[in-house]
Amino acid sequence: MAKQHVKMTVNGKEVEALADPRTLLIHFLREDLKITGPHIGCETSHCGACTVDIDGKSVKSCTMFVGQAHGADITTVEGLVNADGSLGVIQEMFREHHGLQCGYCTPGMITRAHRLLQENPTPTEEDIRFGMAGNLCRCTGYQNIVKAVAHAADALNAQKEAAE
């Protein structure tokens, strides 16, 4: 199959590659770029383990061809750490509030929470539950994930206020 030229920004870095056109974005990220934070839980858009942020939207990268991401700006969970390598606010809150157990859903959860809190910086519990409903977790029962996201919202808002 003729290879396709793709170019995109991933976690702030320009990447360019030749890829088989039917390559799914998740496989391109995980196998070609070795960005293994996003996981595969279903490959049918149900579980959200593969969630990445593409041009300001949460996207399930298992149901998208790499070519469709040509020219896109992509952020994965790896890109959400602070510049000094320490955990970002949402990551820290997941740890603080025990929002993860096996960790398999976590990259997708955190990436989704990152977008959710930009779409809605002051979510109610219901907003969080609804906004995270595209991401499945088999371990935590969500209660602590919801708590972590709520605390992350507060922490981010406090940061913003302090900066103003």
């Binding site: 196998e31 070795k34 994965t76 969970v77 750490v81 955990l87 025990h98 960790g103 398999y104 976590t106």
Partner: peptide, 20 residues
Amino acid sequence: KRVEDVRFTQGKGNYVDDIK
């Protein structure tokens, strides 16, 4: 607090499908 979480929250777990 869990020691595992520092890796997991930044996508640095090492699951079977991550092995190459």
